[in-house]
């Protein structure tokens, strides 16, 4: 039977931010815990751990997913992108720069998840308007209630990407 049953430790090779990463985890380990505790990529934050707050959002094969609602084992064979994978050589992405310029974050806890969602949105809809941005952000909670500046930063990133040669 082409099935594998695992009850103890699982040795996984995950493609995270373009690098092959090895991790040994229990089957019940969520992707979020694996990223944070095994791969030490602590940019992915954990808030509610039941899929409501959006802080742990990462990209799985280019699409946003709650990493607290995925098992690490399920990410095998997928391309995982976390906040650490967003900027290349230390240069901020236009989206990150826009958050800096527009004060799109206060405590920063929700920011990594927000940036992953906006990365997906602006890739799929480079001309996203305010309604589309607000709709995409509805899957994220910001306890600083800095939503106005988050929206302003996203709109500014849209503008910046549009002007880019």
């Amino acid at each position: 039977m082409t099935t594998s049953s695992e009850s103890n430790a699982l040795s996984l090779t995950l493609d995270v931010n373009g690098k092959a990463c090895e991790a040994t985890v229990e089957p019940r380990t969520t992707l979020a815990d694996c990223l944070r505790n095994e791969l030490h990529l602590t940019g992915t934050h954990l808030g509610c751990e039941h899929g409501v707050c959006g802080a742990c959002t990462v990209l799985v094969d280019g699409r946003t997913a709650r990493s607290c609602l995925m098992l690490a084992a399920q990410a095998e064979g997928c391309r995982v992108t976390t906040i650490e994978g967003l900027s290349g050589e230390g240069e901020l992405e236009p989206l990150q720069q826009a958050f800096w310029d527009r004060h799109g974050l206060q405590c920063g806890f929700c920011t990594p998840g927000v940036l992953m969602t906006l990365t997906e949105l602006l890739r799929d809809e480079p001309n996203a308007n305010e309604d589309a941005i607000r709709l995409a952000l509805s899957g994220h909670l910001c306890r600083c209630t800095g939503y106005q500046n988050i929206v302003a930063a996203a709109l500014s990133a849209v503008e910046c990407i549009r002007r880019r040669p």
């Binding site: 099935t3 049953s5 009850s7 019940r28 969520t30």
Partner: peptide, 17 residues
């Protein structure tokens, strides 16, 4: 808030599942 331990099965076909 972590799941209780379980045995994980990852079948590739409906018949196996």
């Amino acid at each position: 808030m972590k799941p209780a331990p379980f045995v994980l099965h990852r079948p590739r076909t409906l018949a196996d599942a």
